[in-house]
């Protein structure tokens, strides 16, 4: 049963990835005109350079073969060559990946810690002042997009108060964390509301369940009931929404890294669009999509650990 389930999920994961990568790859064919001219937009290519691009992308091959070459290359870690850096896309992205990963992880930690705590408090004090205050603040934060958060944080904490740097990603572990503090907060602000509200909603729903009432009727203390019967049961939706956030966070790095002048994958994406470096854009888009799909597949596979009914194939929450 479980093996079948895992197999099914993996099959579905692969299918989604194949379709998504096809979408990323064939999007180029939406652009009318000669693909060589599209790829070399904004440059004055010599005939040799043109020939090199045709050779490199296999432009003289039928579309499906081009796709399989591209996919096949990726399995060997070859994402093609960057037009702006005259270097392998893998190297270009690889250099910038650690700082972006750090940014996303720091931001995710802030979101989950603040969101879960705030949501839990709100659920336990539902309808009271604490609940209303938390909801109002979270909702207001939810309306602050990362670019607004970035410039406000820069203006206040970097320029006015001079507590944090406004630029760059620092050297060494602690310095990097110091440099990434404001950017990760800027990203986290808008997303806290989702985790906060899903925690609250899920906890409130579980609190009203009859089994909680039964547990109380059996002489268990309130904290024990909340820990064993409310929080544990409420985890499922929190994980699901958490998995969904990954996509938003990965894209938000493009804005936050640009605002804080961090040389990460997000700012590389923007830079590559600006410099018409399509191979890099394609690779980053695929990277984001893959991270999202894989994260959610993991969340999905972990579900039976939280909810034994999922293992038995009974959909029901």
């Amino acid at each position: 049963m479980t093996i079948r389930r895992v197999g099914g999920k993996l099959g579905s994961l692969v299918l989604t990835l194949v379709l998504a990568s096809a979408l990323v790859f064939f999007s180029r064919f939406l652009v009318p005109g000669d693909p060589v001219n599209f790829l070399l937009r904004g440059r004055k290519p010599s005939p040799e350079a043109k020939a090199a691009v045709v050779e490199q992308f296999g432009l003289d091959l039928p579309p499906w073969e081009q796709y399989f070459r591209w996919i096949g290359g990726m399995f060997h870690g070859d994402f093609g060559r960057s037009l702006q850096f005259r270097d392998a896309v893998t190297t270009v992205i690889g250099d910038r990946l650690p700082v972006t990963a750090g940014l996303v992880i720091m931001s995710a930690v802030i979101i989950v810690v603040v969101g879960v705590i705030a949501g839990t408090i709100a659920a336990l004090y539902r309808g009271r002042f604490a609940d209303r205050a938390i909801l109002t603040v979270l909702t207001a934060f939810g309306a602050i997009p990362p670019f607004v958060g970035s410039i406000v944080l820069i203006a206040v904490f970097a320029v006015q108060l001079r507590w944090f740097p406004a630029f760059g990603s620092g050297d060494g572990f602690l310095d990097t964390i110091y440099h990434l503090t404001l950017p990760s907060i800027a990203m986290a602000i808008a997303f806290m509301v989702l985790i906060g509200k899903v925690t609250r909603m899920s906890m409130v729903e579980q609190l009203s369940r009859e089994h909680v009432h039964v547990a109380t009727s059996r002489g268990l203390g309130r904290l024990t009931v909340i820990r064993r019967h409310v929080f544990r049961n409420a985890l499922g939706p929190i994980f699901t929404v958490g998995g969904m956030l990954i996509a938003g966070l990965l894209v938000a790095t493009s804005i936050v890294e640009s605002a804080f002048g961090i040389a990460g994958v997000g700012s590389l994406l923007v830079q590559s669009v600006n410099r018409l470096d399509f191979p890099v854009v394609q690779a980053i888009v695929l990277l984001v999509v893959t991270s999202f799909v894989v994260t959610n597949a993991i969340v999905d596979l972990l579900e039976p650990i939280i909810d034994p009914r999922a293992a038995a194939g009974e959909a029901g929450r």
Binding site: V214, R228, D307
Partner: peptide
Amino acid sequence: RAGINPMR
């Protein structure tokens, strides 16, 4: 069905 925690 509702009165016993389904996850335990």
